[in-house]
């Protein structure tokens, strides 16, 4: 296909409009009348283009492999006090930081996956006004972003989450406190019975893992002596954690632990 060479030059030139004859309807047997066409998504006109798009999605359109090597750096430690995870990539550190330290409650050291969940947690757990207000009005905010509903208790909220938002009833970041058994401190993971059936294993495992993130203020109030553990995670981390503060030592409402001289809001 050959275009006139001066085409691009003519981009800015004003041209006079040719005179137009008023439109008349076509006379039979002729039927042409100019019209703008609209195609619906399933129209066969779109077939070739759609196929092209899906070949691209399935990655077989091009055979170029973009490999960008992850830059290795010399091993370094997480700089947060009390955490001694070691990393050899910046990405690994970044993800660790975001998971464990970014949305961490400065009062009780729990980590949350989002700022929204952290805010909700702080409000419900550590705001002394909250309980007073909660008696008068619905204060428990729905955990789903974009839903403005508020509830009288965390139980009502849970029902709402399950019914309206189809959340799992054991949603990890809103789990009843009582699910945590007291065995978890006396029973380190390595002692689990290997022959236990899978689901039992799971339960135990979950109890070990969940506690760093769940929020459930109402039940916790009933049991103020229940220690709140920080993130127990890799053996490395755990060891250090334990050397700092015995997990059984705990003060006050179960919310704060030890003397928080090292607490750092991150």
């Amino acid at each position: 296909m050959l275009l006139p060479p001066e085409l691009s030059v003519s981009l800015r030139v004003e041209r006079p409009l040719l005179p137009v004859r008023p439109r008349t309807p076509p006379r039979a047997p002729f039927c042409f009348s100019p019209s703008r066409l609209r195609f619906h998504r399933q129209h066969e006109f779109f077939e070739d283009g759609d196929i092209h798009r899906h070949l691209y999605l399935q990655d077989i359109l091009t055979n170029v492999t973009e490999v960008t090597e992850r830059s290795k750096v010399s091993e370094f430690c997480c700089h947060i006090v009390g955490c001694c995870q070691v990393f050899d990539t910046l990405e690994g550190y970044e993800h660790h930081y975001n998971t464990l330290h970014r949305n961490m409650c400065s009062f009780c050291k729990r980590s949350f996956p989002s700022g929204h969940l952290l805010d909700t947690h702080i409000l419900e757990w550590h705001d002394s006004l909250f309980q007073i207000m909660a008696e008068k009005q619905n204060m428990y905010q729905c955990l789903v972003e974009g839903c403005a509903e508020k509830f009288k208790s965390s139980k009502d909220r849970k029902d709402h989450l399950v019914k309206v938002h189809l959340y799992p009833s054991d949603f990890r970041f809103d789990k009843p406190k009582k699910a945590k058994s007291s065995t978890k401190h006396s029973k380190p993971p390595s002692k689990l019975d290997v022959s236990m059936p899978m689901d039992v294993n799971v339960e135990t495992y979950e109890q070990l893992q969940v506690d760093s993130m769940e929020i459930c203020p109402s039940e916790s109030m009933e049991n103020p002596t229940q220690p709140v553990s920080g993130p127990i995670s890799s053996l490395q981390e755990k060891k250090l954690y334990k050397s700092r503060i015995p997990s059984t030592v705990c003060f006050g409402q179960g919310a704060s632990r030890g003397f928080k001289s090292m607490k750092k809001k991150v």
């Binding site: 690994g92 975001n98 799971v202 893992q209 993130m213």
Partner: peptide
């Protein structure tokens, strides 16, 4: 359970 753990890796 693993996916929601706080262990990044």
């Amino acid at each position: 359970g693993l996916f929601t753990s706080s262990l990044a890796n």
